[in-house]
């Protein structure tokens, strides 16, 4: 016989009544910082890259005008990605960007976007942005707000081209830009 105690009932009712409450605890960029880490769960880096080496830190680079303030630094003090310590680097010059594993491209980089993408074209660097149209331009993941909820779109073609493997559910949960034709 399954017995629910008082606290269970409380949590149950609570969870039914206020589904958005969890999000309300975070600011938009706090949530985005978390999302960066979560994406890495469902996206596999190409094999034979430095990502597998746990002795080296996982480098998150931010290019352009940093919208995260110190959120990234604070959050990744404790969290790891792919079992590696996370190092946050803020870039201003394009020549710096090739050393990172994940590159957040700020909205300010709209003009240099094409240049940035061509720089890292053949490198195993996952690119994330939160500006409309970036995904269509070739950024792997683009975050956007809709109905007061954070969504994301994936450029499947770009991801495949860069050698990433994406978990199907991530694709299912996302808005797909530049889908790859599936071989039936």
């Amino acid at each position: 016989m399954l017995v629910l105690n008082k606290s269970d009932w409380f949590l149950l009712i609570l969870s039914l009544l206020i589904p958005q409450l969890v999000f309300a605890q975070y600011s938009e960029y706090e949530l985005k910082a978390v999302y960066l880490e979560k994406f890495t769960h469902f996206i596999e880096y190409p094999k034979l890259t430095t990502v597998a080496d746990t002795s080296k830190p996982f480098i998150i680079g931010v290019i352009g005008k940093n919208p995260f303030a110190d959120i990234l630094d604070n959050y990744y003090k404790t969290y790891k990605i792919k079992n590696r310590k996370v190092e946050i680097k803020y870039y201003s010059r394009l020549s710096q960007i090739t050393g990172c594993n994940l590159l957040f491209i700020a909205a300010s980089e709209k003009e240099r976007l094409r240049e940035i993408l061509s720089l890292i074209k053949d490198k195993p660097i996952l690119t994330v942005s939160d500006s409309e149209g970036f995904s269509q331009a070739g950024v792997h993941i683009n975050l956007y707000l809709k109905d007061n909820k954070l969504h994301y779109e994936l450029n499947e073609g770009a991801l495949i081209k860069s050698g990433f493997s994406v978990w199907a559910q991530l694709l299912n949960s996302a808005k797909i830009i530049n889908p790859v034709k599936k071989e039936q």
Binding site: Y35, K38, F42, Y152, Q169, S173
Partner: peptide
């Protein structure tokens, strides 16, 4: 496992 992503991203 099919729910992992939705759980991750709170997508009820």
């Amino acid at each position: 496992e099919n729910c992992v992503v939705y759980l991750s991203f709170q997508d009820r």
